[in-house]
Structure formats: C-alpha cells, structure tokens
Computed example of a mutant assay.
Amino acid sequence: MINTIQNVSSLSVTRGLGSVATENSSTAPSAAESAKNDQSFAAVLGNMATQAVDTMKGAESMSFAGIKGTATTREVVDSMLQAEQTLQTAIAIRDKVVSAFLEVTKMQM
C-alpha cells in the first residue's frame, strides 16, 4: 500500500512538473507556506504526498518496533493515530480533486 502512495507522489516528476524533494516532517513547511514560496500546485501536492508516505512508513516502522518491544505502547498508538489522520486527509483531498474534475467535465464549451 505504501508503494502505491509513493507512486502517486512521483507523478509530478514523471510528467515534467518539477522534482519533489523529500523533507523531514518536523521541518517541512505547511501547504500555505509552500504556496507562498511560489511553488506550483503540482509541487505542493507532491510534497504533501511525500510527507504522507513518510508518515505511513514511520508508523509502519514504529509498529514493528512495538512488536519487537523496543517502543512503548504510547509511541505506537501516537504514530498510528498520526498515520490514520494523514490517510483521512489524503482521502479527503482525493475526493475534492475528483469532485472538481467532475464539475469541470460537466461544463459546456
């Protein structure tokens, strides 16, 4: 599943819309700050997808650490809740993009 999300984040690279830099989620700018830096819409979405993948991978590694006994239950639960919130946000954005696309296709030319 994480590889599928990672493929989505690389779409901007494959279509020549610019490269997506991988950033640490604690130092990554928010979407509003990214938009202020004159980044394209594709770059902002690409950065958000990359951050979502990083969050999912972090939660996955934290769950493995919990199984091994090297992480506390609270750390595992916190990372899982953060991953769940990230996934819900990604789904909401996807739904809005699909809805906007459908509205554009209904327009008469």
Results as ranks from 00 to 15, higher is better:
5 I>K: 09
108 Q>E: 14
38 D>C: 10
35 A>Y: 04
9 S>Q: 07
54 D>T: 00
68 K>N: 10
19 S>G: 07
65 A>N: 14
100 A>N: 14
48 M>Q: 11
38 D>G: 07
51 Q>K: 04
16 G>N: 04
7 N>T: 08
82 Q>E: 11
52 A>Q: 05
108 Q>H: 13
50 T>A: 14
67 I>D: 15
52 A>T: 05
77 V>D: 15
9 S>K: 02
79 S>M: 12
30 S>L: 09
74 R>P: 00
39 Q>L: 10
97 V>C: 10
2 I>L: 05
57 K>F: 06
45 L>S: 03
20 V>A: 07
91 I>C: 03
47 N>H: 08
26 S>K: 03
101 F>K: 14
104 V>D: 09
67 I>Q: 15
79 S>C: 09
68 K>H: 09
2 I>C: 01
61 S>N: 15
22 T>R: 05
90 A>L: 06
64 F>Y: 09
38 D>A: 14
43 A>N: 12
100 A>S: 15
22 T>F: 01
63 S>E: 14
38 D>S: 14
63 S>A: 14
41 F>V: 07
42 A>S: 12
19 S>L: 10
85 Q>N: 11
101 F>G: 06
16 G>R: 03
8 V>F: 14
50 T>P: 05
13 V>K: 12
98 V>W: 10
41 F>Q: 12
14 T>A: 10
107 M>D: 05
38 D>Q: 15
31 A>K: 01
19 S>Y: 06
85 Q>I: 02
57 K>V: 05
53 V>G: 00
59 A>W: 02
18 G>H: 04
105 T>I: 10
78 D>S: 13
